[in-house]
Design a protein around this nucleic acid. Structure first.
Length: 217
DNA sequence: CTCCCGATAT
DNA sequence: ATATCAGGAG
């Protein structure tokens, strides 16, 4: 079997994206938030934790801390208690408080609209920054590569890399720019329901004929 | 590279 | 018992 050319891979990607849009027309961020700062907090909490779990702690969290100033002045112990069930709570509490202080002290209370600035915030890496740009501002400087996007892109043969940065670079050459934001949301939905980490449901997957990793036994 | 870390499904 | 969940910092 000959190696797939970049052009052929792009064509296959267009077909895959078309099918994904048909199947997941309403794919979007599943974190609950009412402001870009709430989105920032929720996204920090979502590290190695399901969005569903995050959405269970944020109502009480956003009730207690209503403004960026409130988060900047938060008692770390109280903050930890409120986010405890999302895991990594010492890191996340520190990141939430420190990033709020940075937003006030270094960004005049505004959450940056550039990835380069966003990743200066404590607890905000490339992935979290891209989520804030996409879901918060509708902007895309890159493609969000989380665990689902990385896993499925690998299975689809869009990358051979494991590192999220390299996966993103590979995807940016293949996926049309206008689809960058939707691509991540649709793959996350697909990863939760069909192309699961442990027991992917290849037999019932509408992409199985376009997927080199599909097991149709 | 290691560490941070609880909830859930299998 | 173990793998996995919208990762980031040192």
């Amino acid at each position: 079997m000959a190696r797939e050319s970049l052009e052929d891979r792009k064509k296959r990607a267009v077909r895959i994206v078309r099918l994904l849009k048909k199947r997941y027309p309403d794919a979007r961020c599943t974190l609950d938030f009412n402001s870009v700062h709430q989105l920032l907090v929720a996204t920090i909490l979502s590290a190695q934790c399901t969005d569903e779990r995050v959405n269970k702690v944020t109502p009480a969290l956003f009730e207690k801390y209503k403004t960026v100033e409130d988060f900047a002045a938060a008692d770390i112990g109280e903050l930890q208690k409120l986010i405890y069930t999302t895991g990594f709570y010492t890191n996340k509490a520190r990141a939430i408080k420190n990033s709020a202080r940075q937003i006030l002290n270094e960004f005049k209370g505004r959450i940056p609209r550039q990835l380069e600035e966003l990743i200066k915030l404590n607890g905000v890496g490339r992935k979290t920054g891209s989520v804030i740009l996409g879901a918060g501002y509708g902007l895309a400087e890159g493609i969000v590569v989380d665990t689902h996007v990385g896993r499925i892109s690998h299975r689809l043969g869009f990358t051979k890399n494991e590192d999220a940065i390299r996966v993103e670079k590979d995807l940016m050459r293949i996926i049309p720019r206008r689809d960058w934001i939707a691509y991540s949301h649709m793959l996350i939905d697909h990863g939760r329901m069909v192309c699961r980490a442990r027991r992917p449901d290849c037999k019932n997957c509408f992409l199985n004929k376009l997927c080199p990793a599909a097991e149709l036994t």
